[in-house]
Simulated assay, not measured.
Amino acid sequence: MNIHTDTNIGSPTRKGTRGRLALLLGMPLMLSLAACANKNVGYRPGCPTVAIVRDASSVGVPGANGQLSYTAVMPNIEGRCEYSEKGVTMTEQLRVGASTGPAYTGGPLPLTYFVAVTDADRKILTKQTYNVTLDVSTGSGGSVERLTQFIPLSPEVDGRYYEVLVGFQLSPEQLEANIRFNSKPPVPPVPAGK
């Protein structure tokens, strides 16, 4: 003999009350779900990712005698975005710094960097190069570069699938040297007392 427990126990009056109570309690949930149907209510698209390309984040340039002329780095970038009906506008602050080496011959230091925008498939949509000149008369110098990119997007596309990538515009030899350097395993720290 199979026994089935009826979880809906109660008088017909109580059963009807439960249905009305469930309807009243479920009303806010139904209203919030109805709001989800409207694409403009509660939807906030994300900003595209902003990043410095690791293998293009630094450059060391040797002088004529093989000693170091200068080293330039991009320590960080910060970005924010603002949406409009036609797309998203990215504004970034990129920090660039440099220090001179024994083979540096003096004068302002010209550097070139790129800003590329990629889509969800990591295909490059645009790439621009910019120049910055640093005053390194004291042995080091830096700059904060303010950048703006506009990415045309339809209103239903989320910008989080796009990237704004920056780095130094390197020669093939400089890029290869950075890739070799960045692929080396880290040196373990020496324990104290040895």
Rank of each mutant, 00 (worst) to 15 (best):
D135K: 04
V166W: 01
A192H: 14
V164G: 01
L170K: 00
K184I: 14
S140Q: 07
Q174P: 03
L170I: 10
V157R: 11
G139D: 05
P155H: 03
G139I: 07
P155G: 07
S137Y: 10
S154G: 12
R180K: 12
G167L: 05
P155Y: 05
L153P: 01
D158N: 08
G141Y: 02
V164P: 05
V187L: 09
E145Q: 14
G141D: 04
G159W: 02
S171T: 15
G193A: 07
G193I: 03
A192R: 08
V187S: 10
G142I: 05
G193R: 07
R180Q: 05
S140T: 13
S140I: 01
N182C: 05
T148S: 15
P186F: 09
Q174L: 05
S137N: 09
S171I: 05
Y162P: 00
D135Y: 01
I179V: 10
P185Y: 15
Q149N: 13
Q169W: 10
S140L: 07
G141M: 07
P189Y: 11
V164L: 13
G159Y: 03
P152H: 02
L175T: 10
S140V: 01
F168T: 00
E176P: 00
I151S: 01
A192S: 13
K194D: 07
L153A: 00
T138I: 11
T148Q: 15
L170P: 04
Y162G: 03
L153K: 02
S143E: 13
F181H: 11
F150N: 09
V187G: 01
V144H: 13
L153Y: 01
P152N: 03
P188R: 13
G167S: 03
S171Q: 11
D158T: 01
V144R: 11
F181T: 12
V164F: 09
V136W: 03
S171L: 06
D158S: 12
